[in-house]
Structure formats: structure tokens, C-alpha cells
């Protein structure tokens, strides 16, 4: 790990505004996540949670404002960041094995045109082992359960050996065994000093799983330890029809 100053935020957005298809999805968002502990981003469907990650990674057009990851513009730290998109964003019928997908986490390090070596495949296998899927490495990904597919995605992020992991809904639609396995791996990563930010959908488990939570609905409504940030007033503003929920209602 590099010697980050303890005060540096691994994920910092300032005045971030993003519009997709002519509609504002994020509006003047200020977020500064702490250097230690696991962070969650919560909010209703269509609140712009995934867009926040995509804008941070340069995958969505930023109108105004900026995001700094690990204290730098994303272009300078791509190799140090792992990104796990939502499981539903890919075609799981694709003819690749669990090991093929885990190895994709190494493509950035391998670079353009070059092929994977045996060392890379061993690293992919090690990542699969860490999420408990060593026995499934040759299985086509469509023949895995939802929780196993989620763990393959996590293994791919692990293989990147990143300092900052941005995980979009790692606990969505999976069995309890997979949920426990993923939580265990994330806790281990956090213990190694890596920064973890998850988009999370289940308000009941936020306080148990995370040390810091940001409530988002187009604007950043609250940010802090779950006990403070998840107040009744905050949740009403984020999830109720009143106040700031124009996008989800208009759709």
C-alpha cells in the first residue's frame, strides 16, 4: 500500500452534476468519504447511485464539478481502482468460465495486445479461492447461482489488487451464504488497509455492515456514521414522495 496521509479521502466529489439523456441525475453533489472503514451509498431506485460511480470513473459525462479518487484525477489512478458493476449489467449466458472472468481483473495490468501468462491465471485462481469458488473455476458463468456469480465479480475485483474498490450492489439478490462470504472478504480487505465503497440497497443491514453511509437522491442528503446519517428526517427526504424525488416520480 502507498503511504496515503490518513486525512486524504479515497473518494471525494465536489459540486458534481451529471445529466443523462437531458435529465439531471446528480445535482451539485458533495461527498467526502473517510479514509478508514467501509462506506455505503444508499438511496431509492433512480437516485443516481450507479451514476455516481460511473462519473467518478469517467464512464458518465460530468457537466460540472469533479471527483478525485485516492486524492487524484481518475485518469492517473486507474490501475489502483477496482470497479464491480451491477451483476445485471452483463450477459451471464456469455461463453466464458469463472476463471476467465476473474482473469479479466488482470487485463489492465497486462496491458494492450499482450496475452495472459500462467502467473496471471494463477492470480485469477487465487482470487477465486478467496471468494470460495476454487472448485467452480472451469464452470461456465451461466451455470452458477446468483450469489456465485456475484462472488465471481468480486474475485475479478480482487484480482486487480486495487487500493480502492467501488462495488455496485455486491449484496443484491444473493443467498445468505454468499452474502456472508462476500462480507467476510470485504472485512479482510478493509483490514489490509484497502478502501471499500459499496452501493447498497438494504437499509436494514447498512448499520451492521458499514461504518459510514451517504444517503443520495440526486443530491447528497446526508453523510456520516449510520447512527447519525440514517435519521428519520433524512430517510423521509430520500425515500418519500415529498421533497427531492423528481426523477423517480416523473419516470
Amino acid at each position: 500500500m502507498t503511504a496515503d496521509t490518513p486525512s486524504a479521502s479515497p473518494f471525494e466529489a465536489n459540486g458534481l452534476t451529471v445529466a443523462l439523456g437531458g435529465r439531471p441525475v446528480l445535482w451539485n453533489v458533495d461527498v467526502r468519504l473517510p479514509a478508514r472503514g467501509m462506506s455505503a451509498v444508499v438511496g431509492p431506485n433512480g437516485a443516481g447511485k450507479s451514476t455516481l460511480f460511473k462519473a467518478a470513473l469517467g464512464l458518465a459525462p460530468v457537466l460540472t464539478g469533479q471527483v478525485r479518487l485516492l486524492g487524484e484525477p481518475v485518469a492517473r489512478v486507474r490501475r489502483r481502482i477496482a470497479y464491480m458493476p451491477q451483476r445485471s449489467s452483463v450477459d451471464w449466458d456469455f461463453p466464458v468460465s469463472a476463471r476467465d472472468v476473474a482473469a479479466m481483473g488482470l487485463y489492465g495490468r497486462v496491458g494492450w495486445f499482450r496475452r495472459l501468462s500462467k502467473r496471471h491465471l494463477a492470480a485469477a485462481d487465487a482470487a477465486l479461492e478467496r471468494v470460495g469458488l476454487a472448485d467452480f473455476r472451469n464452470r461456465q458463468i451461466g451455470r452458477l447461482s446468483g450469489g456465485q456469480q456475484q462472488r465471481v465479480f468480486l474475485a475479478r475485483a480482487l484480482a486487480q489488487e486495487a487500493e480502492l474498490l467501488l462495488l455496485d450492489e455486491p449484496f443484491s439478490g444473493i443467498d445468505t451464504a454468499s452474502e456472508a462470504a462476500i462480507l467476510d472478504v470485504l472485512a479482510g480487505l478493509e483490514g489490509e488497509g484497502r478502501h471499500i465503497v459499496c452501493i447498497h440497497h438494504d437499509l436494514r443491514t447498512v448499520a451492521a455492515y458499514f461504518d459510514h453511509v451517504t444517503v443520495l437522491n440526486a443530491v447528497a442528503i446526508a453523510s456520516g456514521p449510520p447512527a447519525e446519517a440514517l435519521g428519520e428526517e433524512t430517510l423521509r427526504r430520500a425515500y418519500d414522495a415529498s421533497g427531492l424525488r423528481p426523477r423517480a416520480l416523473a419516470a
Binding site: 470513473l57 464512464l59 486507474r78 470497479y83 495486445f113 496475452r115
Partner: peptide
């Protein structure tokens, strides 16, 4: 490998650069 990644998961491919 670039084609396989871009076809399977374009968002992840773009995130890797």
C-alpha cells in the same frame, strides 16, 4: 482479450482504461 472484455462487459473495460 480486449475484444472479449469489451463484448462481455464494456463498462468494466472502460474502467480499466
Amino acid at each position: 482479450k480486449e475484444i472479449r472484455l469489451a463484448v462481455f462487459d464494456p463498462a468494466f473495460a472502460a474502467a480499466l482504461g
